[in-house]
Amino acid sequence: MSTPATTDRAPTDQPPADRPVKPPPSIGTVVGLLVFAAISVYAAIGIEFTLRPLWEDVNRGREIVARYFDPNWAILTRPAVREGFLETLYIAIIATLVGCLIALVCAMLASKVSAPNTPVYRITKFVLSVLRSLPDLAWGLLFVAFVVNPQLSGVLALTMFNIGIVAKLTSESIDAVERGPIEAVEAAGGSRFQRGRYAVLPQVAPNYLSYCFYVFEINIRASAVLGMIGAGGIGTVINILVSRLQHEDLAAVVYALVVVVFILDQASRAVRRRLT
């Protein structure tokens, strides 16, 4: 056997007429791609998209960016900076705890499985999607205006922000819970509360805890920037350094921030991995 074996017909021959014809792409796919292209072009024009600054105006940026490669590490020893970092951490911890506790109740109300009735379920879902639609800094601006005190407004802003995220994720976990145990508790004469406590909670507890650590990671990042609008933490320092154009100092603070977030991220994720 030294010749290729498959076919007695040379492949270059005219193909027989009975070959299936490739079906045209579905209308959904075509429309989808057209919409995608249209939005992309529209958005690109809207924000005047261009990559030209990357090579043309790079000198303008280069000077400033170069200063970021020469950070002034000394600033990290200043008490204001150290306190800023600690404050960011405290705000994140408190907001995580408060937000997650409230979120657990909201999650129970926002799942068909555990909600007492449909109106409550609908309303909670709607409120949660409103909560989630406002970004962290918008909450920050609101609470800075409401309570003035920077640290407290930071805690409140992140709390609201967290409720939206954790309640949504947890309610989805509750939706996916096994129905068997619920039926069992019901059959044993359990109350609505007992049903939630003994049939639903044990099933979603690992996921819920994992979400709590997940928002803690988000909170560290968020509370670091909340200071920019006056809600406490290291962001306050960043804001001052930006307005004073002290880029070398800013660089050191930003790098330190990245390192801190990175380390806490890794620690939190190690815990999450053990939870699930």
Partner: peptide, 22 residues
Amino acid sequence: SGADKEVAFDALERVGILEKAY
């Protein structure tokens, strides 16, 4: 290429599921 496609069609024909090509 058309030739490649024809080889594929021929293979499908040999195992009797040509009509399922797409």
